[in-house]
Structure formats: C-alpha cells, structure tokens
C-alpha cells in the first residue's frame, strides 16, 4: 500500500543557506506523526515546503502518488493538504466566519462543515461575527485550526499550535486531533513541547539542524535518547 504522503530527500534552501537536508518521511492515511526539534531545526521550513511556500525546494514529495512539485500552493490545498501556520496567520480585520469560509472555499469538498467545526469549538459559533484580532490567543488558534479543517484535508499540518497558550487551552486543541484522525485524516504535528506531541502521535521524527536525527514510536524511545537527538552533541 502506498502511503498518503511520501517525501524523499527533501531539501529547503534560502539562498545559499540550507534549512532542511535530505529528509525522508512517510505518513499513512489516518496516521499521526509528530515532528519535534529545537528552535531553528527546520520544522516549519519542512511543513511549508510541502505546500511550496518555503524558499527553494528540491527532492520529491508525493500525496497519494501525485507529485507535489508540479503544483501551486492553491492546487496542493485543493488536493488535500492544509497547513495551520506557525503564528496562526489569521486575517485580523475579517470576522471569524469570513476567516473560516476562506478555508472552506480553498479546500476540497467533504463532510467537515461549519456545523462540525462549531461543534468542536463552540466559542467560534458565538463569536463568528467578531473580528479575528478581537479574540484571545486560544480562540485565534481555534480559528486557524478550524480554517484548515474546513478545507477537508487528507493531510493536516499543524505548526506549533500550542505556542504561547495556557495548558487548558492546549488540551482543548489537542483533544480534536484524535477525532480528526477518526475521519481518516492524517496529521503531522510540529511542536517544541516534546511530551505534548509524543502523547498524541503514532510515530515521531526528531529534527536536528535540518536533518532527521531520530525516528521511531513514542513508546520505544527513552527520554535521554530523545534529548540527545533533540539538542545534538553530548547533552
């Protein structure tokens, strides 16, 4: 069976600087894969490269066998990859509803609609006519996640959705991930917070200076090994 996403020897360059080196990764349908790594390890660059939004990209990335290199971001989103960008990246003067609708318009047809998103995040229904910038950080992150989910992705990419949020809010956000997987959606979760993202993942890879330094199943990896490959050198 071919995996949903298969990445081979992916490199990302910003001019002469190489942020991602020869990364291989596969993600199966309905699988949750966690990417961990220190600040600057290349995690965001990798996710953005999948939707053709990071510098110059070489190597191959395929979604269900379809080569992504030939496609624009728009087409990739329409094919079924949705990114929840680092820093949320909402449209601050647009209402919650308008922000969400843009995700829906750009995505695939599917059964995740406004009702489902409002069920996951009831506060968004209440505040649907508020402007995005009037919301708290946690609520904004819910909009960013909701916007991506409304695109009915086959593969959801989450870039540090817990950043700067209270643990209670993070729990609320992470509670959605298994429910999303139930629908057959694969999820890649990028976090600096190791325990949080290992807890939700089937598999993990650790990035160190743009390369995969370790990969495996959360249950099989002990803390010390992970720390070594997270920070590099003799930690």
């Amino acid at each position: 069976m071919t995996p949903l996403l298969s990445v081979e020897k992916l490199n990302v360059f910003y001019d002469a600087f190489q942020a991602v080196h020869d990364v291989d990764l596969t993600v199966g349908e309905g699988e949750i894969v966690s990417i961990i790594g220190a600040n600057g390890a290349g995690k965001s660059s990798f996710l953005k490269a999948l939707v053709r939004q990071a510098g110059r990209v070489t190597g191959s990335a395929r979604l269900d066998g379809c080569d992504l290199a030939a496609l624009s971001t728009r087409e990739i989103v329409a094919k079924g990859i949705a990114l929840v960008p680092e820093g949320r990246k909402l449209f601050p003067t647009l209402t919650i509803f308008e922000n969400l609708r843009i995700g829906q318009e750009l995505g695939r047809k599917g059964d995740i609609g406004f009702e489902q998103v409002y069920e996951w995040f009831p506060v968004l229904r209440e505040r649907r006519d508020s402007r995005a910038r009037e919301l708290s950080g946690g609520q904004q992150q819910m909009v960013a996640l909701g916007r991506a989910l409304l695109a009915n992705p086959r593969l959801l990419l989450c870039d540090e959705i817990s950043l700067g949020l209270a643990p209670r809010v993070v729990n609320e956000l992470y509670a959605i991930i298994p429910q999303v997987r139930e629908r057959g959606v694969a999820v890649v979760v990028v976090e600096q917070d190791i325990s949080r993202s290992l807890a939700v993942a089937d598999r993990f890879v650790c990035f160190l200076e743009g390369e995969v330094s370790l990969s495996g199943r959360p249950a099989d990896a002990d803390r010390d090994t992970i720390m070594q490959h997270y920070f590099g050198g003799a930690h």
């Binding site: 953005k48 939707v51 939004q53 624009s72 971001t73 728009r74 990739i76 989103v77 329409a78 949705a82 990114l83 960008p85 990246k89 909402l90 449209f91 843009i102 995700g103 750009l106 916007r147 991506a148």
Partner: peptide
C-alpha cells in the same frame, strides 16, 4: 498569510 494557505 494568504499565500501560505493557498489564497494566492
């Protein structure tokens, strides 16, 4: 931000 989510 628009470019990132495919709103070219």
């Amino acid at each position: 931000a628009a470019d990132l989510i495919g709103l070219t």
